[in-house]
Simulated scan of single mutants.
Amino acid sequence: MKPGSKWRYAAVAAALLSTAALAKDGPVAPNGRHYLSQPLVTSIYTADPSAHVFNGKIYIYPSHDIKTNIPDDDLGSQYAMRDYRVLEMDHVGGKVTVGPVALDVDQVPWAAKQMWAPDAAYKNGTYYLYFPARDHQGIFRIGVATSKNPMGPFKADPKPIPGAYSIDPAVFTDSDGKSYMYFGGIWGGQLQRWVTGKYNPHGSATDLHQDDKPALTAKVAMLAPDMQHLAEKPRDVVILGKDGKPVTGGEHDKRFFEASWMFKRDGKYYFTYSTGDTHFLAYAIGDNPYGPFHYKGHFLLPVQGWTTHQSIVKHNGKWWLFYADTQLSNKNSLRNVKVTQLHFNPDGTIQTIDPFTH
């Protein structure tokens, strides 16, 4: 999570935000344009929204950003989140309810700090909250907690999920009832330290630095019926370029960085992700949950802030993209969740969204 050296608006952001006037199109952004969407909530900072439809309502499981004096660094030390709060709404555009604390780091025996981007799932009357956190050795693990209420509170399993590691768990349940977990993130997410399947504390701090080799990519594994364990050894989520070869580490505008999210439409599997230091949301399409997936392009251009993290759901006959930016704070580690409609072309490709309007 690199802070601001490549962030296109940082040089003028503070001054512009402090004097921004409300125009008829809404607040003026630091780049002089207007935001496409407005924050869903302003009482707390939220990011990394994982949206799901349960019982006809939309529930959003975001990170809960908090203020900190920790300096920004490439490994994301400034992202010091410690708990989760769930957002609920009947429909997009309706009232958003902010739930109480659903899970706190002090309630997770194995976790020490940094409760980053979570996800959720439902099966047989139980809601599952999947979350990454650093353990007491500083290693990112992925845990799971359960509840009978989609808003929580959730009770964490005493140990992390065996075989799962790094960050950004995303659980997809297919039409046949089988569920799959996608996970991983490079740089601060430590995926580059798991190349052999075991954690290497002396591995690269960011990535493999092999621009001509296949890029590090997300992992996927089927979940066991209890939804609390992996049913198999994780495998690579292979993303192929137009040449039919895996996207390389040097293709920073295409390669996986973090923020896996899977959805299915018209029999096709859409693997979406963030390119991180190039600030795009990208996607690739495959014929099954494991892939391989064929790279198709970007569907969200850079937002205000270092990067974003997405989820995509269908509700009331429309597809919705949930994402985040830094409109409220102008600080990379204090973000706000937003939503906008997602549109598809006749061939199934996604129309690119600009997070700003003229």
Results as ranks from 00 to 15, higher is better:
Gly26Leu: 10
Tyr130Leu: 03
Lys198Gly: 02
Pro160Asn: 05
His343Ser: 15
Tyr35His: 02
Asp212Ser: 14
Gly125Met: 10
Gly99Met: 09
Met89Ser: 09
Gln210Lys: 13
Ile350Phe: 01
Ile58Asp: 01
Asp65Asn: 08
Asp243Ser: 01
Tyr122Ile: 07
Val220Tyr: 01
Ile66Ala: 12
Ile44Val: 11
Gln114Asp: 07
Ala324Trp: 13
Tyr45Arg: 13
Arg255Ile: 05
Gly249Arg: 03
Glu251Ser: 08
Gly185Gln: 09
Lys148Phe: 10
Pro39Ile: 00
Gln38Trp: 12
Ser147Arg: 04
Val247Pro: 04
Ser43Glu: 12
Ile186Val: 15
Gln38Thr: 15
Ala156Phe: 08
Gly4Lys: 05
Trp187Gln: 12
Gln78Arg: 15
Glu232Asp: 03
Thr275Ile: 11
Phe299Gln: 00
Tyr323His: 02
Tyr165Trp: 01
Val171Tyr: 00
Gly291Val: 00
Ala14Asn: 10
Thr19Glu: 11
Thr326Asn: 06
Leu191Phe: 11
Ser333Gly: 13
Trp187Tyr: 08
Ile70Val: 10
Asp74Ser: 09
Glu251Leu: 11
Thr248Lys: 07
Ala80Thr: 09
Gly32Thr: 07
Lys2Ser: 12
His64Met: 12
Ile167Val: 05
Arg235Trp: 00
His294Val: 10
Ala221Phe: 12
Pro100Lys: 15
Ser5Ile: 13
Asn149Val: 11
Asn316Cys: 06
Leu75Thr: 10
Asp174Phe: 07
His252Gln: 15
Ser274Asn: 06
Asn200Ile: 02
Ser175His: 13
Gln210His: 15
Tyr79Ile: 08
Ser333Asn: 14
Lys123Trp: 02
Leu103Cys: 04
Pro150Phe: 02
Arg335Leu: 05
Phe154Leu: 01
Ile167Lys: 03
Tyr180Pro: 08
Ile60Gly: 11
Pro132Leu: 05
